[in-house]
Design a protein around this nucleic acid. Structure first.
Length: 724
DNA sequence: GGTAAAGTGTTCCGC
DNA sequence: ACACTTTACC
């Protein structure tokens, strides 16, 4: 018998049972901080050592490239040898791999390219212009969302019944035209990667059987984030006989808005009645106090699979709750606590401020700046999404394939070279009339002298430039090729010209692109399915650029709750716990979306290891307007005995507020007996905050934002309001 | 073809 | 309010 102590010993009882489950269908409900990745990694090792599964028969699927890389690394460490034969990657990455291998069977061109969402929107715009559809009535963003969700549900235009209503019919028409444009030009968007590879397996029995035979063991991470097509994809690949090992947490599903279906967890237990379910509830991260709060909060959600986090560690400190006078006061208070923590010897990188929306970072940044505390804000534009990088890549694509219309349009007048809108319109017109690419259309325009003299010269030069670059670049290594393109296209010069910080960082980014290409070239062993350039472009579309070295210098961490998922910090501040902000106004009405907000709060709480600080502001500037806020309902869902209320302002701030609001308002308020921002009690609606006041005497109306039912207008003389 | 003025949107952002 | 994009005009 193989010695498996190194695999099982580091695990607790529940983890061990899951890892050593017999091959079959296994669902592991892994609570926050319960060692989810560890279980996946050890399962892979177990399969290899005990079940004798060769790495070639293993597939591990995750959502992000970062998670995929981490899992792969940890498996290799544990196994002590390379897991090279193992297919590890994201749903999109693995689909991409299948499609490259079987592009013919999938009905694609050999050199198909991946459209990222910007490219997709640009192509969509073009298609809509051809169909003469008004962009104002059908915002491309919305159409894009429509098409992607249809694809996420596995639907093609032909699957969609027309005739329902004119609006939907038009959407379907655009979808069809867009899809035809993609097929014609050999372009594949993100959702298409999944749908296409799903269809490939569905419609091709021999391929399906081949891969089912090969991947007898399929491991899936963050299963609660899968959407419809990903679930179908998994079922197609992991046949009814496969060893399917799925890890997820329904309480941490926070991506419903981009198509994730928590229901997939429950669906799995329906679709595979023989599934074994394990629960990981012992938490190794947080204090008992923090876990109690998290459990109590999430208990307000319905239809959970059910889980209760516990720890054998200590209770730890109470959760600190601060009701700030306004958003500035909130930032000041938080940064004061941060400074204390730093003085107590915390590294800055152990401290995190989490918030619901990106805009909230600004005030914290300012407060941190005034105190000279280094910080880093996560969630800006990712490397390959930055304009200058996309320009450089578009040039590179165009140089290697002049028929690429999307790239042509992007760079034809960047840097400005005298090919304005009029000229491009003419070329587009020509391209449509002749059913030719923009490049070919431009050549025809020159030959037939369709352009005015000035434009004629400009276009001649542009075409010559691209051709010349094409010749220079032939047979050059990737990095040199990209460098040549950046210099030759005039992009470098363009950004060098504006010498502010902006231009400076753009130049740095361009340099970074060249080094990224060099690094990619070194790591990438050609597998005969793609040339280096194609591979690099796919890499740029799929990997976003997280691979950049993050200087993990010691700084305070600022990020949205969404980007905090999967991370942990000894010291966490959850800021902006107000009705309308968190839960967000857009989600408060719909019970499902409200539950997702609650899960987001749960994710936030469970990020904290030792200390948790929660704050809300009674008054906040939002979209340029001062608003009165009620504390988030999530606060009242936490057991009060876990909370330490900090009140530094109780008696002082309210009169101060009335003064700041200005005299006119306080007079009006005076004759109702209430003032703006005051907490009041209504016999039916419960407690709330006075938001606005209108009119005088018996017809005067008062707007109250109730904690449970939201904002309502009431006639002051009828509403039996009481000060609370 | 470049700058100024008007317009737009404003929750979360993986691949 | 603000940042960013598109349009309008010189």
């Amino acid at each position: 018998m193989e010695d498996v102590s190194d695999i099982l010993d580091p695990l607790n009882e529940a983890q061990r049972e899951a890892v050593a489950a017999p091959p079959g269908r296994t669902l592991v409900l892994a609570g926050a901080g319960s060692g989810k990745t560890r279980v996946l990694v050890h399962r892979a090792a177990w399969l290899n050592r005990v079940e004798g599964a060769s790495p070639f028969t293993l597939m591990a699927v995750t959502f992000t490239n970062k998670a995929a890389a981490e899992m792969r690394g940890r498996i290799e460490t544990l196994l002590g040898f390379s897991a090279a034969g193992m297919w590890t990657g994201t749903f999109h990455g693995l689909s991409h791999r299948l499609l490259r291998r079987h592009w013919r069977e999938a009905g694609l061109t050999e050199s198909f390219q991946i459209l990222d969402s910007d490219d997709q929107k640009r192509l969509l715009r073009r298609v809509m212009r051809l169909l003469e559809i008004d962009e104002a009535r059908f915002p491309p963003r919305q159409v894009q969302g429509y098409i992607n969700s249809r694809k996420d549900d596995g639907q093609r235009p032909d699957d969609l019944g027309e005739g329902a209503d004119p609006h939907t019919d038009r959407m379907i028409r655009i979808y069809r035209a867009y899809q035809e444009a993609c097929e014609r030009t050999g372009q594949v968007d993100f959702a298409e990667l999944l749908l296409r590879s799903f269809e490939l397996l569905r419609d091709n029995a021999s391929l399906r059987n081949h891969y089912r035979e090969q991947f007898r063991h399929v491991l899936v991470d963050e299963f609660q984030d899968t959407n419809g097509i990903q679930y179908a994809w998994l079922r197609m690949l992991a046949g009814p006989e496969a060893d399917l090992f799925v890890v997820g947490d329904d309480d941490q599903s926070i991506y419903g808005w981009r198509g994730a279906r928590v229901e997939n967890i429950r669906r799995l237990t329906d679709d595979y009645p023989d599934v074994r379910v394990f629960r990981l509830e012992q938490n190794y991260r947080s204090t008992a106090t923090i876990l109690k709060a998290a459990n109590a909060l999430i208990d307000n959600n319905s239809g959970r699979m059910g889980k209760n986090l516990w720890t054998d560690g200590e209770d730890g400190e109470a959760i600190m709750l601060y009701a700030a006078f306004n958003d500035l006061d909130e930032a000041r208070f938080v940064v004061d606590r941060l400074r204390e923590a730093i003085a107590d010897g915390h590294a800055r990188s152990e401290l995190a401020i989490l918030y619901r929306s990106n805009a909230q970072s600004r005030l914290f940044e300012e407060a941190l700046l005034t105190h000279g505390i280094p910080y880093r804000v996560y969630g800006g534009l990712r490397f390959f999404e930055r304009a200058e990088i996309k320009d450089a890549l578009a040039y590179t694509r165009l140089v290697s394939n002049p028929q690429d219309d999307a790239s042509f349009e992007r760079v034809v007048n960047t840097p400005p070279r005298g090919i304005g809108g009029k000229t491009v319109d003419l070329i587009r017109e020509q391209s449509r009339a002749r059913r030719a690419s923009l490049w070919d259309a431009a050549e025809q325009c020159l030959q037939e002298r369709l352009l005015p003299g000035r434009a004629h010269n400009a276009v001649t030069q542009f075409l010559a430039l691209i051709q010349a670059l094409g010749e220079q670049v032939t047979d050059q290594p990737l990095a040199e090729a990209i460098d040549l393109v950046i210099k030759g296209s005039g992009l470098r010069e363009l950004f060098a010209r504006d010498r502010d910080d902006r231009g400076e960082s753009r130049l740095e980014n361009l340099d970074e692109l060249v080094s990224a290409a060099r690094g990619f070239e070194q790591d990438w062993e050609g597998d005969g399915e793609m040339d280096t350039l194609t591979a690099f472009l796919a890499h740029a579309a799929l990997e976003g650029g997280e691979g950049q070295a993050q200087d993990w210098q010691d700084c305070v961490q600022l990020m949205t709750l969404h980007s905090a998922k999967g991370l942990e910090f000894p010291w966490v501040c959850l800021a902006g716990l107000e009705e309308g902000l968190f839960p967000h106004r857009m989600s408060a009405e719909d019970p499902d979306r409200l539950e997702e907000e609650r899960r987001l709060c749960y994710v936030g709480i469970t990020r904290a290891r030792r200390r948790l600080l929660m704050t809300w502001a009674e008054k906040r500037r939002l979209h340029g307007e001062e608003r009165w806020c009620a504390p988030s309902r999530f606060i009242s869902e936490l057991p009060d005995d876990l909370i330490h209320h900090v009140r530094t302002r109780v008696s002082v701030s309210r009169p101060a507020m009335a003064i700041r609001r200005g005299l006119a308002e306080s007079h009006e308020m005076a004759d109702s007996g209430f003032h703006l921002g005051q907490r009041v009690m209504h016999p039916k609606f419960g407690e709330g905050v006075v938001l606005q006041y209108e009119g005088q005497g018996p017809s005067a109306r008062i707007q109250v934002n109730f904690d449970t039912v939201g904002a309502k207008w009431l006639v002051a003389s009828y509403a039996k309001l009481q000060g609370a």
